[in-house]
């Protein structure tokens, strides 16, 4: 459900970025990064974007979603591993002391504007 709130925030931020860069052209494409452990569902995000973008600055823009992998690092042996769930032991040494390094991103990466 909070995908709606996230899309609202995204559209608001696109407006802020365009104002800052003093750009008035139509938005063609938005590139965002949604980490695999961000807790955000990409299909719901697309659905919310189609629902909320008409009538806003982001109307008609293509939403391109990159899904960065989740990476954990073992606090004991230092090994970095790609993971698919958060509650795991280190695959190398078996230690439960792991830190999530990547995969929680929720970023507006770039905006393509019509010239």
């Amino acid at each position: 459900m909070h995908e709606l709130a996230i899309v609202e925030a995204l559209i608001e931020q696109v407006g802020t970025e365009l104002d800052r860069a003093e750009q008035k052209g139509a938005v063609k494409r938005l590139e965002i990064a949604v980490g695999r452990l961000s807790g955000v569902h990409c299909d719901s995000l697309r659905f919310a974007f189609n629902l909320l973008s008409p009538g806003t600055i982001a109307e008609g823009a293509e939403l391109s979603i990159r899904e960065p992998s989740a990476i954990s690092r073992c606090r004991q042996c230092g090994t970095s591993t790609e993971i698919t769930e958060m509650v795991i032991d280190c695959p190398l040494c078996g230690s439960p002391e792991i830190a999530i390094e990547k995969g929680r991103e929720l970023l507006l990466e770039s905006i393509d504007i019509e010239d």
Binding site: Q13, E109, I111
Partner: peptide, 8 residues
């Protein structure tokens, strides 16, 4: 292309 690279 406008690079934003900011948290949504």
């Amino acid at each position: 292309k406008l690079i934003a690279a900011k948290s949504i």
